[in-house]
């Protein structure tokens, strides 16, 4: 279904007519999403700043080609994601796998069925503040694409459709990545608490 993006249309029209205040509004409205994607994909603070600027310069230059097939924020998100991907590819940084010191992929997903003993311990161990901190550390260990998807879904609360448009991943693949990432996060959390308990 074609949606009505009237506010986006007004903003884009104003910018194309030379109104820079309207572009400021776009930055204000979308920078939360842009920053989230960049911070999840890119580690170096200096690179983050450069990429954030690059993203908005691209948005400004490509604005006349925006066809309103999605929300403007989703389109800006797509540009951000692609800019980060290009950057990582240039730097030869793996985007789906984390390579350990021996050169092995450490992002192995074990498709075991869940056993009861672990879950019964979960809530007993986890305290809110610590849990948030440990989770933050565990998210940082995820490969960039997984990290971004998890954040867009759980933190930014975007729909599968919107994330799919931003990342250009089919919804099936996206769901599969989300499953893996959540499983990995949960396992890491449980392992951390189990180790500290010993």
């Amino acid at each position: 279904m074609k949606q009505d993006y009237s506010i986006d249309r007004i903003l884009v029209k104003k910018i194309l007519e030379g109104n820079s205040i309207a572009f400021k509004t776009i930055i204000t409205n979308t920078q939360g999403l842009v920053i989230q994607i960049i911070y999840k994909m890119i580690k170096n603070p200096r690179d983050r700043e450069d990429i954030a600027q690059e993203v908005y310069l691209k948005v400004f230059n490509k604005l006349s080609s925006f066809k309103f097939n999605s929300k403007l924020s989703t389109w800006v998100g797509t540009i951000t994601y692609n800019t980060c991907l290009n950057f990582l590819e240039k730097k030869k940084i793996p985007i789906l796998n984390v390579i350990d010191k021996e050169g092995n992929e450490s992002w192995n997903i074990i498709e075991n069925n869940i056993t009861g003993s672990i879950h019964n311990q979960t809530e007993d161990y986890i305290f809110k503040k610590e849990r948030a901190h440990i989770l933050q550390l565990e998210i940082e260990k995820l490969p960039p694409v997984y990290k971004t998807i998890v954040t867009l879904f759980h933190n930014e609360e975007l729909s599968y459709e919107e994330i799919s448009k931003i990342t250009n991943l089919p919804e099936g693949t996206l769901k599969s990545y989300l499953f893996r990432a959540r499983k990995k996060l949960r396992e890491s959390l449980l392992n951390t608490y189990k180790k500290s308990d010993l």
Binding site: I27, G32, V34, I35, Q53, I139, T151, N155
Partner: peptide, 17 residues
């Protein structure tokens, strides 16, 4: 995950852009 804090940005993006 929902309660994770948003990243702290130490630069004024709007101004820079």
């Amino acid at each position: 995950l929902k309660e994770q804090p948003k990243p702290n940005v130490d630069f004024n993006l709007t101004e820079l852009v």
